[in-house]
Amino acid sequence: MKGYFSESRSVEAVNERMSEETDPRLEEIMGKLVTHIHAFVKQVNLTEAEWMAGIEFLTRTGRICSDERQEFILLSDTLGLSMLVDAISNRRPDGATENTVFGPFHVKGAPEYEMGKNISLDGKGESCLFEGTIKDLQGAPIEGAELDVWSDNADGYYDVQQPDVQPKWNNRGRFITGPDGCYSFRGIKPVSYPIPSDGPVGQMLTALGRHPYRPAHMHLMVTREGFQTIVSHSFVEGDPYLADDTVFGVKQSLVASFERTPDAEGDTVWRSRFDIVMARLGEDTNVDLRSAAADEK
Rank of each mutant, 00 (worst) to 15 (best):
225 E>I: 05
281 L>N: 09
158 Y>T: 01
168 K>P: 00
134 I>T: 01
288 D>P: 07
226 G>V: 09
169 W>G: 11
179 P>E: 15
146 E>S: 08
142 I>Q: 01
125 G>I: 09
197 S>W: 03
187 G>L: 05
19 S>E: 11
267 D>I: 00
173 G>I: 05
36 H>A: 07
107 V>G: 00
262 P>H: 13
63 R>N: 08
199 G>M: 05
66 S>H: 02
179 P>H: 15
31 G>Q: 11
226 G>C: 10
110 A>P: 06
84 L>A: 13
167 P>D: 14
26 L>W: 13
46 L>W: 02
294 A>V: 03
137 L>C: 06
269 V>K: 04
257 S>Q: 15
8 S>K: 15
172 R>H: 09
234 S>D: 08
32 K>E: 15
156 G>C: 10
104 P>Q: 04
199 G>P: 01
277 V>S: 02
118 N>H: 13
97 T>Y: 01
60 R>Y: 02
220 L>P: 05
123 G>R: 05
231 V>D: 03
50 E>P: 04
188 I>R: 06
111 P>K: 03
78 T>I: 02
40 F>K: 09
291 S>E: 14
232 S>L: 10
292 A>W: 15
295 D>H: 06
18 M>E: 09
278 M>V: 01
85 V>K: 06
92 R>P: 05
116 G>E: 02
249 G>D: 03
21 E>P: 00
194 P>W: 09
118 N>F: 11
132 G>V: 04
47 T>D: 07
158 Y>K: 00
273 R>W: 01
51 W>H: 06
8 S>Y: 07
244 D>K: 04
104 P>K: 04
199 G>L: 02
224 R>G: 01
292 A>E: 12
245 D>N: 02
18 M>G: 00
198 D>F: 04
216 A>M: 04
206 T>V: 07
198 D>E: 11
32 K>W: 10
92 R>I: 07
159 D>Q: 14
297 K>L: 10
149 V>K: 08
32 K>V: 10
216 A>Q: 00
269 V>G: 02
15 N>C: 14
84 L>T: 13
1 M>S: 12
19 S>D: 12
